[in-house]
Amino acid sequence: MARAAERLVKALTWGCATLSLFGLGLITLFLFREAIPFFRHISPFSFLGGTAWYPTQEPPSFGILPMLAGSGLVTAGALALAVPFGVAVALFVGEVLPRGLRDPFKVAVEILAGIPSVVYGFFGLVVLGPWLQGRLGLPTGQTALTASLLLGVMALPTVASVAEDAVSAVPDSLREASLALGATHWQTMWRVVVPAARSGMFAGVFLGMGRAIGETMTVLMVSGNSPVWPPSLLSPVRTLTATIALEMAEAPVGGLHYRALFAVGAILFLFTLLLNVVGDLVAQHVGGKR
């Protein structure tokens, strides 16, 4: 009886663990099942390299280069904000802040990550966008810059928390050794802690990048969504994610447009997968060393 129960529980929990893997497999399968037929009509080359996206014209053209560039530009802008501030937060929390204040600060950063993306988008739409428009004298406030700023705030907690984990994983004995040699607190931080935590910080950058590229609602609401080529920071741009969100409702199921959007999804999927694997490898590299 007890043994049967034991086996049953083991099988059940195994099933639960395997199901998450199965879910990932299903996602891969269904994305590609819907996307691959698309490439029978359109060559991958003209899909990735084409600069015109007119999915509903006759004949349609499906070039996602403007969206690739839009996603790239917005993500780069976001990282330019999230990486320095994220690392500063990690170092401040891990090395400067007294222990008692660390947890409240971390909760605040966590809340920043917890604010729904649609709320960020709304904030950008009604506050940040118009403000930037007025300040910079732009024809519209819905620009790549607006999206970058908001995405930067949203990716910051990811960068900060992964980097902070790396900073706090640096053993105190290293800090003490450095201080005992007469190094100042600041020197210890830059010459001992940062190098030791470097891999973790890079991992944070990769994961933050994945977060920024995959973000949908915020960019959809604030970036203007025009697939222009070449994109600029102060003009409206459109990202891969926003394209899916905007057009899926109008694309007839099973049609070429529908499949094109799944192809965009598959590219996003592969790219974020790659970023995660690289991020994990870099993070494990830290673990392996110790």
Partner: peptide
């Protein structure tokens, strides 16, 4: 376990819009 863990981590990084696409297709 290692494979499952890699799978879980990868699943965590999939963009939410891709979940939307998958939910629609599946």
């Amino acid at each position: 376990v290692r494979i499952v863990r890699v799978g879980v981590n990868s699943l965590a990084g999939v963009p939410s819009i891709v979940f939307g696409l998958f939910g629609l297709a599946f």
